[in-house]
């Protein structure tokens, strides 16, 4: 298992290297010096900011040297200073926003698992039943549903019409005056819609995968054996079949991390949640280049961590991989 994980870690670090190359390439996308274009496109940039940027990227040196010097800084999480008026280091601005984005993504991942697995399993065990047909239709509609539109509809229903849930931010104005449990309840109320919306996209896909994975497993011989020796059907499905059917889901979950992190831009903007996604949107609107590059790199890094975690879980539960 150690060798397997080591191999994956090496592969992932090669990928990470590729990501930094690509990020660097995007910065040099525009012809001429990147800073020339930046200043032309962005009237907000002062001459000093431009000078800082030129110095930061060592623009007088050959491009390979530029890249290596930039990489050397990025390794130490030094992404330069933000262009916005507060001029704070990029890493600081990102750091304080990571926890909220991660919390929402992890919660929505849990919600996906909690809903999608039972749906997938039950529709597989009742293949072609009315229930299976209905979930299939719902899944198709779910695939086609733009997440941000769902967010708007839910905001209209629960926020504007029924007034049950708040529609923006993560805390109420009187948050500081609430008791401990009041605080938790308040934050929970604010997070219901964002978590549900960000989970929604994954629900359709994962329940579909769960269904086909389950269908494949229950056709295998060992399941017939389990039934033949007289085990109750529940035990066959939930003890014997489910375990193996869950394996591919781990990989799919790992693969869905980029979508979740990328999706945070949309729902954090809609619900005005002060996380990485909204920061990204703001930085793009303000053309805050150091911040954009920092967020791109960190976002990709978090995605890789997610993939690595999925690989680790996979190795943990599948003895075949451990022994390779």
């Amino acid at each position: 298992m150690v060798t397997y994980l080591f191999k994956r870690a090496v592969e992932l670090s090669v990928t990470l290297f590729g990501i930094t190359l690509l990020s660097f390439f995007i910065l040099h996308l525009a012809p001429g010096k990147p800073t020339d274009v930046l200043t032309e496109l962005n009237p907000k940039i002062t001459p000093e900011a431009r000078e800082r940027l030129e110095k930061y990227y060592n623009l007088d040196k050959p491009i390979i040297v530029q890249y290596l010097l930039w990489l050397k800084r990025v390794v130490r999480l030094d992404f330069g200073e933000s262009f916005s008026t507060d001029r704070r280091p990029v890493w600081q601005k990102i750091k304080e926003r990571i926890p909220i984005t991660l919390t929402i993504n992890i919660l929505s991942m849990l919600l996906i698992l909690l809903i999608a697995i039972p749906i997938g399993v039950t529709s597989a065990t009742r293949q072609y039943s009315l229930y299976d047909k209905i979930t299939t239709v719902v899944v198709f509609v779910g695939f086609a549903m733009p997440g941000f539109w769902l967010a708007l509809l839910l905001m209209m229903l629960f926020g504007v019409q029924l007034q049950w849930l708040p529609i923006s931010g993560i805390k109420s104005l009187n948050y500081e005056n609430l008791s401990f449990f009041g605080k938790i309840l308040d934050m929970g109320k604010h997070l219901v819609l964002p978590v549900f919306v960000s989970a929604f996209g994954g629900l359709a896909g994962i329940s579909r995968y769960m269904r086909s994975s389950m269908l494949e497993v229950i056709r295998q011989d060992y399941i017939t054996t389990a039934r033949a020796k007289g085990l109750p059907e529940n035990k066959v499905i939930y003890r014997h079949a489910l375990r193996n059917a869950l394996l591919p889901i781990i990989t799919i979950l790992g693969l869905s991390v980029p979508g979740l992190i990328g999706g945070s831009v949309i729902f954090e903007q809609i619900f005005s949640i002060p996380g990485m996604g909204r920061l990204f949107w703001l930085s793009v609107m303000q053309r805050d280049y150091p911040l954009i590059m920092g967020l791109l790199t960190i976002g990709a890094f978090l995605t890789l961590l997610g993939n690595m975690l999925a690989d680790f879980c996979y190795a943990l539960v599948d003895p075949r991989i451990r022994r390779q």
Partner: peptide
């Protein structure tokens, strides 16, 4: 693999910014 592991929405937005 590199392209797939970058959140594509981040990638698209970064390029649009430039």
């Amino acid at each position: 693999d590199v392209m797939l592991s970058i959140p594509s929405f981040f990638l698209i937005l970064s390029v649009i910014a430039f």
